[in-house]
Amino acid sequence: MKVRPFEEVVASHGATVLRVCRAVVGASDAEDAWSETFLSALRAYPALPEDANVEAWLVTIAHRRALDVGRARSRRAVPTATVPDRHDERADPAARDPDLWAALQRLPLKQRHAVAYHHIAGLPFAEIAIILGNSPDAARRAAADGIKALRTHYCKDEAS
Rank of each mutant, 00 (worst) to 15 (best):
R86G: 12
A94G: 10
A95Y: 10
P98L: 06
R71Y: 06
P79W: 12
W57Y: 04
A103R: 00
G70S: 06
V83T: 13
P79R: 10
L107S: 02
A66H: 00
G70V: 00
R90C: 10
W101G: 02
A103F: 03
R86A: 15
R76F: 06
A77C: 07
A66E: 00
V78K: 15
G70P: 00
D68R: 10
A95M: 13
R86C: 11
A56I: 05
V69I: 15
T82R: 08
A72L: 11
H87D: 10
R73F: 05
R64D: 12
P84F: 06
T82V: 15
A77D: 13
W101L: 02
A81K: 09
A72D: 13
L67Y: 07
A103I: 04
P93N: 03
V69E: 02
H63E: 05
H87S: 10
L104A: 05
H63L: 11
P79E: 13
D88I: 08
R86P: 00
D99Q: 13
R76N: 09
P93K: 01
N53G: 05
P108R: 08
D88A: 13
R106K: 12
R90K: 07
V54I: 14
H63N: 08
V83C: 07
E89H: 09
A66I: 01
H63S: 11
H63C: 06
R76D: 08
A77V: 14
R73Q: 14
D88F: 05
A72K: 15
D88T: 10
T82E: 11
V78Q: 15
E55A: 14
D99K: 07
Q105M: 09
E55V: 12
V83M: 08
T60Y: 01
D99E: 13
